[in-house]
Lab assay of single mutants.
Amino acid sequence: KELVLALYDYQEKSPREVTMKKGDILTLLNSTNKDWWKVEVNGRQGAVPAAYVKKL
């Protein structure tokens, strides 16, 4: 499985998103959308802005 690093804090704004903190390591589930990537963090799945994460 592919991992990404959170470059910034992000507070979810809808139920389809997830909150992450700078430095979090997230499991990347889907990166086909260039703006929003689906990730899993702390057992929750949701979208985060692609510009806020970097593939490891």
Rank of each mutant, 00 (worst) to 15 (best):
K1E: 10
K1Y: 14
E2G: 11
E2R: 13
E2A: 12
L3V: 09
L3W: 14
L3E: 07
L3S: 07
L3A: 06
L3R: 10
V4S: 03
V4P: 00
V4K: 00
V4Q: 01
V4G: 14
V4E: 02
L5W: 08
L5T: 07
L5F: 10
A6G: 03
A6P: 01
L7Q: 04
L7V: 08
L7D: 01
Y8S: 08
Y8K: 13
Y8E: 10
Y8C: 15
Y8M: 12
Y8V: 11
D9L: 03
D9M: 04
D9G: 05
D9V: 03
Y10F: 08
Y10Q: 00
Y10W: 10
Y10T: 01
Y10A: 01
Y10V: 02
Q11F: 14
Q11W: 13
Q11H: 13
Q11K: 13
Q11R: 11
E12Q: 14
E12K: 14
E12S: 15
E12I: 07
E12L: 08
E12F: 08
K13N: 11
K13M: 12
K13E: 08
K13D: 06
K13F: 06
S14V: 05
S14P: 05
S14H: 11
S14T: 12
P15L: 10
P15K: 10
P15M: 09
P15C: 12
P15D: 13
P15V: 10
R16P: 05
R16K: 13
E17W: 05
E17K: 05
E17C: 08
E17S: 07
E17G: 14
V18M: 12
V18C: 09
V18W: 09
V18K: 01
T19Y: 04
T19M: 04
T19G: 09
T19F: 07
T19K: 04
T19A: 07
T19C: 05
T19E: 03
T19I: 04
M20T: 02
M20K: 01
M20P: 00
K21A: 09
K21N: 09
K21I: 08
K22G: 04
K22H: 06
K22Q: 09
K22V: 08
K22R: 12
G23C: 08
G23R: 02
G23I: 02
D24T: 08
D24V: 04
I25S: 02
I25G: 01
I25Y: 06
I25P: 00
I25W: 05
L26F: 08
L26Q: 00
L26V: 07
L26M: 14
T27R: 12
T27Q: 10
T27M: 12
T27P: 12
T27I: 15
L28A: 02
L28H: 00
L28R: 00
L28Y: 02
L29Q: 03
L29F: 05
L29C: 07
L29E: 02
L29M: 08
L29I: 14
N30T: 08
N30R: 07
N30Q: 10
N30W: 07
S31F: 07
S31I: 09
S31M: 12
S31V: 08
T32N: 13
T32P: 04
T32H: 11
T32V: 10
T32S: 14
N33C: 11
N33E: 11
N33D: 14
N33M: 08
N33Q: 10
K34W: 08
K34F: 08
K34T: 11
K34H: 12
K34E: 11
K34C: 12
D35S: 11
D35M: 13
D35I: 14
W36R: 03
W36C: 07
W36F: 08
W37E: 01
W37P: 02
W37R: 00
W37Q: 01
K38M: 15
V39N: 00
V39Q: 00
V39I: 07
V39L: 03
V39E: 00
V39G: 00
E40N: 04
E40G: 05
E40V: 08
E40R: 07
E40M: 10
V41D: 03
V41Y: 12
V41W: 09
V41A: 12
V41L: 15
V41Q: 10
V41S: 13
N42R: 11
N42A: 10
N42M: 09
N42D: 12
N42Y: 09
N42S: 09
N42E: 10
G43T: 05
G43L: 04
G43P: 01
G43Y: 04
G43F: 05
G43M: 05
G43K: 04
G43C: 07
R44E: 05
R44Q: 08
R44W: 05
R44I: 08
R44L: 07
R44S: 05
R44K: 12
Q45L: 09
Q45T: 13
Q45G: 07
G46Y: 10
G46A: 06
A47D: 15
A47T: 14
A47F: 15
A47G: 08
A47C: 15
V48A: 03
V48K: 01
V48L: 02
V48T: 02
V48C: 05
P49D: 02
P49F: 05
P49W: 04
P49C: 06
P49K: 04
P49V: 02
P49Y: 05
P49R: 05
P49Q: 02
A50C: 08
A50N: 03
A50T: 06
A50L: 02
A50R: 10
A50G: 04
A51C: 15
A51V: 10
A51I: 11
A51P: 08
Y52V: 06
Y52A: 11
Y52K: 07
Y52W: 07
Y52H: 06
Y52D: 02
Y52G: 05
V53E: 01
V53W: 02
V53G: 01
V53A: 02
V53N: 00
V53P: 01
K54F: 10
K54Q: 13
K54T: 12
K54N: 05
K54A: 12
K54S: 10
K54M: 15
K55S: 08
K55I: 14
K55P: 10
K55Q: 09
L56S: 03
L56M: 10
L56D: 00
L56C: 14
L56A: 04
